[in-house]
Write a protein that binds this DNA or RNA. Structure first.
Lengths: 261, 261
DNA sequence: CAGTGGTCTAGACCACTGC
DNA sequence: CAGTGGTCTAGACCACTGT
C-alpha cells in the first residue's frame, strides 16, 4: 500500500488559509494530477485525520467542499469517490427537425440512438388542469390545458423530467391524450391535425436543483440542473405547446447553430 | 420583535429525518411562504440554536445545505441572507446578427443596452500562443493562435469570463490584435477582411465552478456556471474563431430559436 | 464594543457496506 | 464483523461587521 504522503503534500501551518481548504486543495491537486482517477476511492476520513493530524470535522469540511464543487461524491459505508464524468447526451438544435419525426422517431429516441444508449420513459402521467400563470401567458390564456408529464432515463439513470402543456381545444379527442401518442410523438400528431410547426423558442437557465428535483433525478450534490422551457409555434404564429424540462446538467451537452445574418 | 416560532414550526423528534435536514426544511418553507423575503436576514445561528434546542454544528449544517441549494448566502459578521434573484441578462440567439454589427455595436453592448444596465469590460489581455488540443481541433490545427481574454461586468458585478482564439494567419497585422478592435468588434473586422460569417456553433454545459472561476466571477456557493464554446464559421466553411466563455448562471437567461424544418 | 459567522477540537453513537 | 461515512454534542477561539 502506497503512503498517503506520496499523494498528498503537507499543509502550510503559517498561511492564513483555513486548514480544511488546504486539505481540499491537496486532494484537488492529487485528483487533477491523476493520483486518483475517475471512480477511484479517496483515503478514508480516518486516514486523512491521521495523515494531516487534524480533527475529523476538519477533514469532513474539506470533503464537503469538494462535493459542492461536483468533484467527488460520498457513498455511505463505502467511501468517497472521484466522480466519473458521465457520457454526455448531446442535444443538437436540429433535434426537432421534421425529418426525424417523419422517420417515426421521437426526439428522445433520436438522441438516445445517437448516443448508443438504452432510452426509457418513466412515470408517465396525462391529465387536464388549469394552467399556471406562466404557461397560460405563453399559450394565449387557454381555460384548461392537457399536461403530459414524464421522466426520461438513459441506461437506467434518470436524466430529465419534463412536462408538456397543450391547449385543451387542440389536444382533446386526439391521440395526444393517450399515454403513447404514436410514432413521431405529439409533434407528429400536431402536424397531422393541421398545426404545421414553424419554430421553437427555448429559454434556458442553469441553477442548483430543488430537493425534490434532486430526488427525482437522483442527483449527487454538486450537480446543477439545466431548466429549459420550450414553446412550439405553428405556421400561423400560434403557440401550440409549452414544454418545461429539468435536466441533470452532468448528463447533457447542448449544441445550437446560430445563423450569422 | 416577532417570535421565531411564528415563522418556524417545531421539529419531528420521532421521524428518522436528520435534525439538520428538518431545520433546513423549516427555513426553506418559511422562505417560500414569504416569511423571509429576498434579501432578508435569517435568524442568527445563536437564535436557531436557542429555538430548536440543538447544537451549533447542527444549525450550521442546515444552513450549509441551504447555501448549496443556492437559496441563501452567508456574510461573515453580518448574517445569513435570502439570495435575491438577480435580474437576468437575456442572451438571445440573434445576438450575433449582422444588423447589430452594422450599427457598430458589439454583442455585449447590444445585450446590456437591452437590459438597461451599465456594461464594463475588464482584465483585457491579448497574446499569441500555441493552441490547446481542443482549440486546435476546432480551428483546423493552426500553428499559433491569437488569444483575446476579457471579463465582462454588469453594474460592477463580474458575470462572464471569455477567451477568443483566432488563427494567427487571419488576425496578424489587423485591428484584431488591438485591445479595442473598433466598432462592431472582431466579427465586424473579420467580415471586412473578407471572412464573411455564415453561422456559429455553440456547445453548452452547466457545472459547478472551479475555485478559480468562483474567485474571478465572485460567485456565492450554490451558483453554477454555464460553459459555452462557440465556433464561428465563414461562408467557405472555415472556422475563423473559437470563443470559450464561462458565465455566472444566476445572471443569465439564454434564448434560442430553432426552426421546425 | 457586542453580535455575527468561520474554524477547529475531541469526543459520541448511528447506519450502511462488504466480507 | 470491521470499516466506512452520517449525525450530533459542547465546548473553544478567531475574524469580520456594525455601532
Amino acid at each position: 500500500m502506497a503512503q498517503l504522503s506520496d499523494h498528498l503534500g503537507p499543509l502550510d501551518p503559517t498561511g492564513d488559509r483555513a486548514v480544511y481548504r488546504q486539505i481540499a486543495d491537496r486532494l484537488r491537486e492529487a485528483i487533477s494530477r491523476g493520483r486518483f482517477t475517475e471512480g477511484a476511492k479517496l483515503p478514508s476520513e480516518a486516514e486523512l485525520v491521521e495523515h494531516f493530524g487534524v480533527s475529523r470535522m476538519t477533514v469532513r469540511n474539506s470533503i464537503a467542499l469538494l462535493q459542492s464543487e461536483g468533484l467527488v461524491s460520498a457513498e455511505h459505508g463505502k467511501g468517497v469517490f472521484v466522480r466519473p464524468r458521465p457520457p454526455v447526451r448531446r442535444l443538437a438544435s436540429d433535434r426537432f427537425a421534421r425529418r426525424h419525426r417523419e422517420q417515426g422517431k421521437s426526439a428522445f429516441i433520436v438522441e438516445a440512438d445517437a448516443a448508443g444508449s438504452a432510452p426509457t420513459v418513466d412515470q408517465l402521467e396525462v391529465r387536464e388542469e388549469r394552467p399556471s400563470a406562466e404557461v397560460s401567458a405563453r399559450l394565449g390564456a387557454p381555460h384548461k390545458v392537457l399536461v403530459r408529464k414524464r421522466r426520461y432515463l438513459l441506461d437506467g439513470r434518470p436524466i430529465e423530467y419534463a412536462a408538456s402543456y397543450l391547449p385543451l381545444d387542440i389536444a382533446r379527442d386526439t391521440p395526444i391524450v393517450q399515454p403513447n401518442p404514436g410514432p413521431g410523438g405529439i409533434y407528429a400528431r400536431l402536424e397531422e391535425l393541421g398545426h404545421t410547426l414553424d419554430h421553437f423558442d427555448e429559454e434556458l437557465r442553469a441553477r442548483m436543483p430543488t430537493p425534490q428535483e434532486a430526488r427525482h433525478l437522483h442527483l449527487a450534490s454538486g450537480v446543477p440542473v439545466i431548466h429549459l422551457v420550450r414553446t412550439a409555434f405553428d405556421t400561423h404564429g400560434r403557440a401550440v405547446e409549452v414544454c418545461d424540462t429539468v435536466m441533470a446538467a452532468d448528463a447533457y451537452l447542448l449544441t445550437y447553430r446560430l445563423p450569422a445574418t
